[in-house]
Design a binder for these strands. Structure first.
Lengths: 255, 255
DNA sequence: CTTGAACCTCACGCCGCGTCAGGGTGTACC
DNA sequence: GGTACACCCTGACGCGGCGTGAGGTTCAAG
């Protein structure tokens, strides 16, 4: 109900002014976000929408809030009530947005790594592609975001030197276990128990004793065939044998 | 149709292994992304889904590609055809993702600026909030992304010193125009034409002669009441007068 | 044979509109 | 007054990737 003589705008004019579409204005009307103050009187159907200067001002506020990434229902809330704390709202929203931005950055990093890997190889078949993709995404499939951060922090703590040492230790240990198994050594044998202690010592050094990480790692090694060029499939019999030896030795596993 | 004796998994088992939900597997089946190789024979209804090791492998590939942010239909394409160039696909996708990430970063920057502004003020009413939001989002409403980049580049080019000079020049020029108007100077008068030349000289220095930027600027000054604490509303009569003077002087406007 | 957990198939909801389809209105010109 | 013709209106479906019921069936264990 605009005052008579007041300047009014029709949907198309508003759309042109704001860069929106008429459909969008209809939508805002439908969801009760912005309803025109008036309509042209018409014979049969509903008349044309007539927006006043006040409507226009409200629309500008809507657009501003929308540009900050708020949802339309949030926008409606903020415009209808004034008993909320803008600071808190903005900070919460900022946190959300930075979170999303971080996610996307990580995704971009993964993709860049993938692009690099593909560039290094000469011919790239569809299989190579899928394998490389797998390589890069595997780790994230098993660890949660939080766990990955813990792992990074832990790596920082122990230093690269020790990480390299552990990496070098694994093949040696696996060879020893394999020969013990080939010799049909009983898992309850003290030698087997010693191997189990070394084995789970290395594991614990990686997991930092975190049960969640232990479980994730376990699942990954049970599910995957290759991890980081290591033949995990071949490790599975060893893992069972070592598990038995650990049980005999009374080693407590984090899981 | 899994071979008899082959290990199969039911939907729930697969879901547990992969961290998906059963509903998701149903969805993948429905859209033809991953259909189980078999089903249990049943009396009346359709049987339970039975997934083979091959299905599992395909699912892993699906998850990998999904983790890289590809859409499900894209994933389907990449798994069904092998006559595409992975390098190109990845690079295109990377570009998309970095684009989105940049958008979100800019949004986060705006929000951070808003949070700062709100922190500086002591009491923040709903109106203050909306005004501050407006302040921060206004510019982006009128200029396209490309135009903002042009403006930034141009600012870089001319240097901060000159920008400050122009900023200082505007109030002086406006005062002169105002007094000329108060004196009822004819826009066709040579003095008026000289003022118009200075006026559009300053404008051209800002726009760099770009017609698109000129139009955006014009629209902003016609629509807004305040821009950057400048009383744009009061400028409008001046703009008309100067426009007439410019016409008399035969100044060509970029728009 | 019975229970109970797990499975099945519809079908709607979400978010912010785009995009038809089918029909009324407002204004300018004759 | 009529007649264009641009503009406006109201439904209704679609999109992506599932979540979330409702209501019924099937499998494996006891």
């Amino acid at each position: 109900m605009p005052k008579t003589g007041e300047r009014v705008w029709k949907a198309g004019e508003l759309a042109a002014r704001t860069g929106l579409t008429v459909r969008t204005l209809h939508h805002y009307d439908a969801i009760g976000l912005l309803s025109p103050s008036g309509r042209t009187g018409s014979a049969h159907g509903p008349g044309h929408r007539l927006y006043t200067a006040a409507d226009l001002a409200r629309l500008q506020q809507i657009l501003s809030l929308k540009q900050l990434g708020f949802g339309l229902d949030e926008v409606r809330e903020y415009l209808s009530r004034d008993d909320y704390d803008p600071r808190r709202v903005v900070r919460l929203h900022l946190a959300r947005v930075t979170g999303q931005a971080d996610e996307l950055r990580k995704l971009a990093d993964r993709l860049a790594a993938l692009a690099d890997a593909l560039d290094k190889a000469e011919a790239v078949s569809a299989d190579d592609f899928l394998n490389t993709v797998r390589e890069i995404t595997m780790v994230e499939q098993y660890y949660t975001q939080e766990q990955l951060e813990q792992l990074a922090a832990r790596k920082e703590q122990v230093g690269q030197a020790r990480v390299d040492e552990v990496q070098a230790e694994w093949p040696r240990l696996m060879a020893e276990v394999q020969s013990a198994m080939d010799a049909r050594t009983d898992p309850a044998d003290p030698k087997a128990q010693a191997l189990a202690r070394r084995w789970f010592g290395l594991v614990a050094e990686f997991t930092g004793g975190d049960p969640g990480i232990f479980k994730s790692l376990k699942k990954m090694y049970e599910t995957e065939d290759k991890v980081h060029d290591m033949d995990v499939k071949a490790m599975r019999p060893m893992m069972e044998w070592v598990g038995q030896a650990a049980a005999a030795a009374g080693i407590e596993l984090p899981g």
